[in-house]
């Protein structure tokens, strides 16, 4: 128990002695008093394992997440169209950036958009006047 309280970040004594920290000081003292006997009180419940446990270990009882296994329900050559539809959807989802069908190529789109922007906003940068207008 003692080593846990020392691990907690604590305010230095000089700060706690300041006038405006009176309430905080009282609170900390109360907390200490409350947790003082916890070590003895729960000693039969709290095991050594709990004290030294670190959150870095995740137990996993299934092989599913260790080995990278595929789904176990499969159908081939049209035996079960429903399952095959799901299999196709899954393979598509695995490669999302594999060439999406494009109606308009990137170059044409860039050219068109440039022209479109020109038509809408004749000036590249806002003029002084428009800026002032906005402010008003």
């Amino acid at each position: 128990m003692a080593n846990i309280t020392t691990k907690k970040p604590q305010l230095p004594k000089s700060v706690l002695d300041m006038k405006f920290m009176k309430k905080t000081k009282e609170r900390i003292e109360r907390e200490l008093e409350n947790t003082h006997d916890h070590g003895n009180l729960y000693s039969n419940i709290i095991t050594n394992e709990m004290r030294s446990a670190s959150g870095n270990y995740i137990s996993e009882s299934s092989f599913l997440y260790c080995e990278d296994l595929i789904e176990g329900r499969l159908s081939f050559k049209g035996m079960n169209p429903d399952i095959e539809k799901l299999m196709v959807l899954e393979t598509q989802a695995e490669q999302p950036n594999s060439e999406m069908q494009k109606d308009v190529s990137d170059e044409i789109l860039a050219k068109k958009f440039k022209a479109f922007n020109k038509r809408k906003r004749p000036m590249e940068t806002p003029s002084k006047y428009s800026f002032i207008k906005k402010r008003k």
Binding site: S62, F63, L64, G72, R73, L74, S75, F76, K77, G78, M79, N80, I83
Partner: peptide
Amino acid sequence: WPFELAAGM
């Protein structure tokens, strides 16, 4: 050939 399979862990 066409077949269907379900593998349980």
